[in-house]
Nucleic acid binder design. Structure first.
Length: 274
DNA sequence: TCCTATTTTCCTGCTT
DNA sequence: CAAGCAGGAAAATAGG
């Protein structure tokens, strides 16, 4: 790849993102991150992979869909590819949620805006508002065709075993999910999107679910950005992580700093869990 | 408005 | 000494 997560020596944070972001805490003040919107100024056909990913987040947020039940990997594609999927492709890729996704994209393709009011759509630079601030991906390299995305085989073959795995027992629409995504899910999603994970967190043992924060403060900033909280720190984020031990969403890994392990109650992190 | 789950904040003390 | 880690307590949030 062209982007090496090595530009680190200088300033851990600023070098990672926002080298040119005067927008940091300013324009974020709206009704919360739910007001983030997908780039309606451009057609979904022209979305980058990142924007597609962002759209997925929006949809599950709006519909209160359990993030862990949506196989993001199946949508590792750009807008052009996304738009070429038909209804069945969506169902195949996302089970029952595919229906919702299909409706959303269909709506957007026809110029609609889904049921999101974009009244406050002022900010153009929303790349700055999301989970993965553009991390300085040059415009042309937002996605890399060489990344073995599942995009190609999403419709052709019924092969993908993992596509249907999480849906066998239904699309559960969570009742109480404050912000669409919980911290652990946010962390998991970063782990699951290596192309957009500029060396923030890394798997230590993929099959065991052990991972380590490489840039703890950077991740905290990202999390804070998602929660529209510019004062988030790793100190505070880690406290929230520690609460997960009791709930067995995370298991304690002692001795090693910045290392955590997914527990029995954390789902959706496994690569190919049958 | 009250209730609940999930953080977010702060803090003291201990460990690497 | 500078980060992390452990948890307790209590406030803040946001959906129900």
């Amino acid at each position: 790849m062209s982007i090496t997560p090595s530009a680190t020596l200088e300033s851990p944070l600023t070098s990672t993102w926002g080298p040119t972001n005067p927008y940091h805490d300013g324009p974020l003040v709206m009704s919360g991150y739910a007001s983030r919107l997908w780039p309606h100024d451009s057609q979904p056909q022209f979305w980058s992979k990142y924007q597609v990913w962002e759209w997925l987040q929006q949809v599950i947020d709006i519909h209160q869909i359990d993030a862990s039940s949506l196989p993001f990997q199946n949508f590792d594609m750009d807008g052009h590819q996304l738009c070429s999927l038909n209804y069945h492709d969506f169902i195949r890729a996302a089970g029952s949620v595919g229906h919702i996704l299909y409706n959303s994209i269909t709506e957007l393709k026809s110029g609609g805006q889904y049921h999101l009011d974009i009244g406050q759509l002022e900010l153009k630079h929303e790349t700055d508002l999301c989970p993965f601030p553009d991390v300085s991906y040059p415009p042309g390299e937002i996605y890399d065709p060489s990344v073995q995305s599942l995009a190609p085989n999403i419709s052709p073959t019924p092969s993908s075993p993992e596509i249907k795995r999480s849906f066998s027992r239904g699309h559960q629409v969570k009742k109480h999910n404050p912000r669409g995504t919980h911290l652990w899910e946010f962390i998991r999603d970063i782990l699951l999107n290596p192309e957009r994970n500029p060396g923030l967190i890394k798997w230590e043992d993929r099959t065991e679910g052990v991972f380590r924060f490489l840039k703890s403060e950077a991740v905290a900033q990202l999390w804070g950005k998602k929660k529209n909280n510019s004062s988030m720190t790793y100190e505070k984020l880690s406290r929230a992580m520690r609460y997960y031990y009791k709930r067995e969403i995370l298991e304690r890994v002692d001795g090693r700093r910045l290392v955590y392990k997914f527990g029995r109650n954390a789902r959706g992190w496994r690569d190919a869990e049958k």
